[in-house]
Every structure is written in structure tokens, then in C-alpha cells.
Design a protein around this nucleic acid. Structure first.
Lengths: 251, 251
DNA sequence: TCAAAAGTGTTTGGGATACACCCATGT
DNA sequence: ACATGGGTGTATCCCAAACACTTTTGA
């Protein structure tokens, strides 16, 4: 933890951190994985530091894996936040105080930090939130009910969502956010939730099928009220191809 | 310069730099402002370091102003480059050697750096390239004739252009790249150069006029071969409005 | 039998593309 | 006069948006 890092601070890039906005989808809601530590009454994005001989992308993978147990998922750098006053000495000192670390030992941590923002799309059900030790809680929170966050994390979160909305026009989304088998209405809800607006069912079906990444399964969802919707899965091969080549159309 | 920075290294964010891809437009060519230093046979992007109590955006403005003498121009962060091996010890040692700085004094400089990439769009004719001291040359280079660059600067440049192409769909471009009065064919050449493909004259005119940011002047370009083209200027007010609200269409 | 969600086709309008002719000017 | 680039209008096509009825199932 922090103590360990401070004891080995030469092995970490000074003044640089990673923050991850981890999106999941459940109950037709867009969720964000957030952390609540005992030394602050505000929530925070999961983050970490960058080992000096590790790519920042790798460091982001480490953060993600550390909090979700997931690997090989969609992860993308979207912006770097470096306002001079984005770090508050009060906050860092409170943390040092909580751990009983003297201020001079904690100088590395209390200095000005620039943070690189990444966002990830993960499968809610496969995610096992993993708190580091007993001093924190890791939880999925509905993106509409996100409480006050520390520092500029609210801005980081908003920028991530904005970027995701943009990139929805450039790539297909869903492979990492939905279970293997899903229905078209579920996929549509996902798009609607990300975009924050309603889409027409018929037009959505046509567009999403035109991309050619969906396979209609010979199976219907069971145990549902009303008419049972068909199940679909992604054609992984074609999906990857489209991710590589990009989409032409938009939403 | 470097010596001054090293003597005051506590005032700079360690391991963090700014690199600017400065685009200009002249002779129907997209130009990039590059630097050639005496201590390397390769060219480089203009860059700089980040004072600890300055926003990274401000630091980028400083770099830009330092090299071009320009202020208040279009500047945008596009990506952060943090591969572990993007910095070569050989390169930094060569620089230190050139300045006659002992290796131990130059430790700060020779450590691993992460760099934040910004790109700028500036008016070629208003730009006065400003070398720092006698050890460097600052020059506009046609983006098609960019020589080998140091480190990963080639990748940074390519990513910048890619981003610019993307953002052409989201915002109007030209206010900072063209002189006050310009012709439609000039503006079209600019778009063609950025996009790397030809556009239809008639369709271009219709689309660009539909945005509603151009004012047709009662004036024609003089001293030109063939039919004198009309001069236009940007309606600054509407231009800013569209920059704020974004475009809907694409190219 | 009724309410609620799923499945399916057609029409229409606007934007993108393709295309051709006339005009002005310097050589 | 002619070659070169500038200016303008129209037809077409395709994609996106709008829209209504039928089907299935649980309550």
C-alpha cells in the first residue's frame, strides 16, 4: 500500500498517477466502480502509480486488474489532468496522517501530481471488486447517483463518459459490457444509457445488424415477463475486425 | 536553457514533459514546426518542462509562445506518451555531454520521462520561429517531408495529425491557419491537405457555407493568374459559437 | 382478456455524391 | 485564342428518422 510505495518511491514515477473510470452495465444501468477509503468521506476513482520501468498503459492494466480481477479487457487512455491546483495538500496530508506516516517521509506523495485518465468497459457479472486491505470499500455505483468525489475526480469521470459517447460512433461497444448471450433490447438499453437518450427500436435493430457483428442464436430468454426476446451473441472475429477498421456511421 | 532548468529542478515537475505539434499552412502545404539541435542529427518536436505550480495547459502555451511568438491560438491536448522505453539514456547523455553537464548533475534530465502531447494550429505568416540560443534551428517543414525524428516524436506527430483529422468533423478549422482574408479554394486546399484526399469543389462550397461561419467580402484576390477568386473572412462570433457547440456533419 | 414488451416494413426527407457548363484572366 | 482555375446548379442515391400493427407471454 501507500507505505510500501513510499518505502520504494525510487521505483515509481514521481508526480504521476493513473486514474481509471471503470464502467459496467447491470439492471439497465450504467455503473462506475468507485472506492471509499476510511480517511476521506468522499469517494474516489480507482487509481495507482506508475513504476519507472513500466509503460503507463501497463500501469493502467495493473490498476484495473487489481480492482476487478479482470484481464484483457477494453482499456483506453482518454485524457491527462494536470491543473496545478488539482491536488490538495489537505487531502494528501490527511491520508498520510491516517497511515501515521510523518510528513517528511510522505513528501513524495504530497507533491503535485499529474494524472493520466483511462476508461475501461468491463463485464459487471464477472467483476469481483477487490478492496486493498480493510481500509477501503470498492463498489459499483449507478452513474446517475455518483456522490461527491475527491479532487477533480468528478471532472475525470465526466470527461470519460463524454469520450465514450464520442467513441461510440467509431467502434462497436458491448462485448465487454454484456454477458455472452444477450438480447437486442438489452444492447439497446446499453446504448441508450451511455448516450443518455432514447433510440427507436426498429432503427436500432437495423443499424446494429448492418454492422454485421451479431449472431442470432436459436434460443430465447426464459423466465421473463411478456414476450420472450431472442438471444444474440457477438461474432468475435467480425467484432475485432470492426474495432480495428472503425465504424462509418454514428448514433 | 537546460542548465538553468537543472539548477532549478525543484521548480519543475520531474519526469514530465510537454511536446507540441505545431501546424501551419503555406503554399498549399501543411507545415510542422520542428527543431534541429546541434547535439543530435535528428529533428525534434518543440517541447518543454512543466513548472510545478503551473497547469500543464499553461506549460504548453509557454512552449508554443516561446517558439512562435504567438499567443491565444488554438491549442489542444491529444494524448500522453508513456512507454517505459520511449526515452533513451543515450540521447539524454549526449545532450548533457554537449552542454558539459556532469552525469550526476543531469540525473533529473536523464530519468524516465512521460510526455503530454499538444497540437496547435497557427497562422504561418504571423509566426516568427524563435530558436533558443545558437544551438538550435527552428523551421517549418512540409509534413510530407518530415525527416527522421528523435525518440518517439514521429509517433507523436502522426497521432496529432490523426486527431486533427478526427476533430475536423467536430469543429471548423481555418481561423488560426489562414490569414484574415482568404479564398474558398485556399480553405478547400487546407481541408484536403489535412485529410489527405481531394474534395469536390461544389460540394465543399455548399457544406462550408452551410455552417454559416463565412462572410463573403466585396473584394477579389488580385495579381493572380486566371479568374480572380472571391475573398472571404471568418465571422468570428459565429465561428466561436460553432466551436463551442460542435458540428454535426463530417467530411 | 388485458397489459406490456418484442418483433417486423415502409415511407419520407435531407444530406452526400456525382456531374457539366460558363466565366474571368494571364499568356 | 486558349489554357487554367473559379464560380454555380441539378439529379440521384442512400441513410436516417418517423411511424403502426401484430405477436407472445404472464398476470
Amino acid at each position: 500500500m501507500l507505505k510500501t510505495i513510499l518505502d520504494n518511491k525510487e521505483e515509481y514515477q514521481p508526480g504521476l498517477s493513473i486514474d481509471c473510470v471503470i464502467f459496467g452495465f447491470h439492471d439497465n444501468q450504467l455503473k462506475v466502480l468507485l472506492i471509499k477509503t476510511k480517511y476521506s468521506d468522499k469517494w474516489a476513482l480507482p487509481g495507482g502509480f506508475v513504476p519507472v520501468n513500466e509503460d503507463i498503459d501497463e500501469a493502467a492494466v495493473t490498476v484495473l486488474h487489481g480492482r476487478t480481477g479482470l484481464k484483457g479487457i477494453f482499456l483506453r487512455q482518454f485524457s491527462t489532468f494536470g491543473a496545478a491546483r488539482r491536488c490538495s495538500v489537505d487531502v494528501s496530508n490527511a491520508v498520510l496522517d491516517f497511515y501515521g506516516i510523518p510528513l517528511d517521509e510522505g513528501k513524495w506523495y504530497a507533491s503535485r501530481f499529474v494524472t493520466v485518465g483511462y476508461y475501461a468497459l468491463v463485464d459487471f457479472l464477472q467483476t469481483v471488486p477487490q478492496p486493498e486491505g480493510k481500509n477501503e470499500i470498492v463498489e459499483w455505483i449507478d452513474h446517475n447517483s455518483v456522490p461527491e468525489l475527491i479532487l477533480d475526480h468528478r471532472q475525470i469521470l465526466d470527461t470519460a463518459l463524454e469520450t465514450l459517447r464520442m467513441e461510440l460512433n467509431l467502434m462497436p461497444v458491448g462485448y465487454n459490457l454484456l454477458p455472452e448471450k444477450f438480447t437486442i433490447p438489452e444492447l439497446q438499453k446499453l446504448y441508450e444509457t451511455i448516450l443518455g437518450r432514447k433510440l427507436d427500436r426498429r432503427n436500432f435493430l437495423r443499424k446494429i445488424m448492418a454492422i454485421g457483428i451479431l449472431t442470432k442464436l436459436d434460443e430465447k430468454k426464459s423466465n421473463v415477463a411478456h414476450k420472450a426476446p431472442n438471444l444474440y451473441s457477438f461474432d468475435k472475429e467480425k467484432y475485432e475486425e470492426v474495432v480495428k477498421n472503425g465504424l462509418t456511421q454514428g448514433w
